[in-house]
């Protein structure tokens, strides 16, 4: 049906593309390459994690007990659910059900906020105890060499992830806005699709952070 160009369909086509499928595929490809760069950005932190865990295995085990596994699990469930609602929001817009799509986006946004609130409580607890990165580390209850390294790694990984959650929330609220304005439909929903890809990436990174930080056996 690519040649059956309705006028609404044409309106989204930039001058240098010849077909809207070319345009939307380009956009998705760009997003996937962006995801690739994100994977390698976080990759540096995963490498640092592996290096220091292999250097101090005992300490990592002792230190990880000070993370709250219940809150960690709760946040994992929250993020996975938000990923599901995001995927369903895109499905709704594909089927031209704008209202349902907006509701699902709002749910995703709310779940992201819940994630950050839980994170806030975890962080403030650690600040209170002095379980802080590097030279700010004042806690004394962890055995093993250099326990501050664990918290350096913990705060860098979850902190960078947290920034990505905030960026995702900004993107979701923007997509929600343009959906409410009626600018997205089953004909053209690229912004929502790209935001979805980004949001799933944020979920995916947390899927790795959770066992690596909270569940050291």
């Amino acid at each position: 049906m690519t040649s059956g160009n309705s006028s609404g369909h044409r309106a989204h086509l930039a001058h240098h593309f010849s077909e809207s499928s070319q345009q939307s595929e380009s956009a998705r490809m760009g997003m996937w390459i962006f995801i690739l760069t994100e994977v390698l950005l976080f990759g540096g932190l995963f490498v640092a994690y592996t290096v220091y865990r292999s250097a101090n295995p005992e300490m990592f085990y002792n230190a990880h007990k000070h993370l709250d596994i219940h809150l960690g699990t709760l946040n994992t469930i929250v993020l996975i659910t938000s990923s599901l609602t995001m995927a369903l929001a895109i499905r709704s817009i594909q089927l031209n059900d704008r209202k349902k799509s907006i509701k699902l986006l709002a749910t995703t946004f709310a779940l992201a906020a819940v994630f950050l609130i839980v994170k806030y409580f975890e962080y403030s607890h650690k600040f209170h105890l002095g379980q802080l990165p590097g030279k700010f580390y004042t806690y004394t209850g962890i055995e093993g060499s250099n326990p501050h390294i664990f918290f350096s790694v913990y705060f860098m990984m979850t902190g960078l992830h947290g920034i990505h959650v905030i960026a995702g929330m900004i993107a979701i609220s923007w997509v929600m806005r343009i959906t409410i304005q009626g600018r997205l439909s089953s004909e053209y929903y690229t912004p929502m699709e790209l935001t979805g890809l980004y949001w799933h990436l944020v979920d995916m990174i947390w899927i790795f952070l959770f066992p690596l930080l909270y569940l050291i056996g």
Partner: peptide, 26 residues
């Protein structure tokens, strides 16, 4: 308590989850 297998199990399950997210949601 599985010793070294704990880490392998954790990363293995995480990979499985990531594959599900990437293949279906994404």
């Amino acid at each position: 308590k599985l010793g070294g297998w704990n880490a392998i199990a954790a990363v293995g399950i995480a990979c499985l989850k990531a594959i599900l997210v990437a293949f279906v949601f994404m």
